[in-house]
Design a protein around this nucleic acid. Sequence first.
DNA 1: AGACAGTAAGTTTTT
DNA 2: CTTACTGTCT
Length: 719
Amino acid sequence: MVDTLTPSQSKVVEFPYQSNSTLKVVAGPGSGKTLTLLHKVYYLIESGQIAPNEILILSLTNKAVDNVITRLFDVFEQLNEKRTEEQLKEIIGGLEVHTVHGLANRVVIENEGIINVIEENGWRGLMKLVSEDFWKNKRPKIPSIKDFKRLFEQYKNQKTGTKDVVKKLTDIMENCGVVTNEELIDRASRYLNSDVVPESTAQTMEYTRNLKDKIKVVIIDEFQDLYPSLLPLLRRISLGKQLILFGDSNQSIYSFLGSNKEAMNAIEDIHTGRDFHIMHLHDNFRCTPEIMAAATRVIPLKRKEMNDGEIEKVCKDKCGVKPIMQNFSNPLDELEFVRDQISQLVCASAHLSDIAILTRTNNQMQLIADHLQSYGINSHKLTAQPDWMTDSRIQFLIDLMKVISLSHREESLKRENFVNRPWKSDFSLIVTLSALKGATNQSIQILYNECLRHDISLRRYISSVPMSDWPAAVTNKRKISNCVIELQKLMNNGEFLYSDDPMQILQKICTFAHEMGFQMLQPTSHRDAEQFRQHLEDMYIILKLCLTNKPNDMPLVEWFLHTHFEQSLSYYHENPVPRAGSRDVLKISTIHSSKGLEFPIVFLMGGLSWFHSISQLEDNVLYVGMTRAKNLLYLLNTKHPGLDYKSATRNIMSNEKFWRYYNTDLNRDIPADFASAIRRYDCLQRKYDGFSMKRRPFSTLSVAHNNKLMRLIAHIARK
DNA sequence: AGACAGTAAGTTTTT
DNA sequence: CTTACTGTCT
């Protein structure tokens, strides 16, 4: 059955099930980790030891989860042709595959109802509630949202200093069902730890209980990404179960979340006195020996292993081309180099979709995408989430919908004489009012304090207490009041909350936002406006999708608010390139998001050198980036003591030997006529010559919001 | 108070 | 390399 696997892979797959034990599988890049994992799952089920619903597969990123889910069906189908599609679906449907946060979310929701994870706009709103002197003697004088977030966490843990301020904020969050990601994990592990489940709710807590009692095997994919604060949760989940860890410590690139060295050691003996086994998958089926040799030199520990003769076995033949390294002092040169190389590669036998450009930051990613776009080269961003979901303007609109929906719910509960506290709408309303032009921090603070004093919801206070009775210090009373009145109009208007027409819903909410003139929705440029329009369109698609799968007894708006996150993720997963005109587009991703993926050709952008010095990536980040490449690797502006800079750049386009190797490796036909590549390239160059710098508007070259590049270009222009 | 020299950070993800 | 803040001196 497992004859397609290597001996070491088979050993992992056939390792016996044994409760209360840990198996750690160290799997280097390209070693067939996911394949082995899936075979392992299949083996557990097929051998009758474990039922599908007794297996829990966890990972840290959505990407890794997607990866497992996507390949599940293929691998299972291949392994057993006897089963019908229906049976396979049932087996696969029984498996639990989640991100750690996704799992925590489910547990918490089951125990305390719908909760929301606080987002950028939420932090901005909270920030408005702390007084100026909170920032006195603090690190940054002009605090950003990020600084605020950091300080908030810090104070929460320390429980010293401005405790009362933080306490006030956490109370609001508590009341409104808003949590931070850390809190989400904490709460989940609390619910799993509390062994006493109240009898009355025992039946409904099925999911939580199953996690504790039913699951027998917990598989953690990419264990190197774990960080200390996840450990309590994982400890509880793996209690008494077989814990199988897959990963590679050299690919640990999330050390900024906490010390994962510590976490990695801790997870090995997560329960003391446990049976512990470790296995290695050494073969590398992905990279060429040339790429692997360079990547190995990047990690000090690896270099030592190599000397000890304990190196990964690369299973591919030499391709004859070493990684191409080049440094630039001018970012435009770098972008042009990339563009030129891509032209050459495509004119030879590469497809655009073979190529991936990996960057360190999201900003760089956007910059490169824009530049290539200006030449008519389409690219697809491999982000963890679709763009529109991270657009704070869209999130703001969703917040507006939340205020209306939650307020409506509160009103109807009140009519039926239920308890009125807590008012979940307060949080979203604070976020909304904070964005209102003219509503100062102070006004919102005072108003909110008044509400606390009168034990009344913020919305209700604003709408029912006459403005003349508001504290005098509140400015712009009319504007604030008007905003809430308009919100209430939407709330009482059945055409919004109970509408089944996605366009109508979108229109109503946009009209409202427009009339209120929210500052943050004002586009700063034409480009900005176009982007917003596109994101609105994407939101419309998800609204339409919600309409097709919503339960009959739930209004569309409510269903959307509850499920839009998951729905968009799965929609995005199934339609990875929803709007690109041509199918053949190149891929752009941050190094972090590219983990677990592989590409025939990789451009690794160390950093667009804003500085004259070339940025040095962390060892592991560089290693991950390099080992994504199957056949050809470019290292641009990448500095590392282990790398040898003297390797010469060859003309790739006319390297027949390489392209023979390349096409063979990808199971493609070898082109008969290599000379035509050069002809095609010449033709393409002539076309690009038409794109003179003058004709290309500056705004497409750089990004309006990337001031740094603008300044740098100005600097270069002066010279 | 104002000028000047020295220092540390910048980024990456999770619903 | 640039920014944003600190500390020290006059």
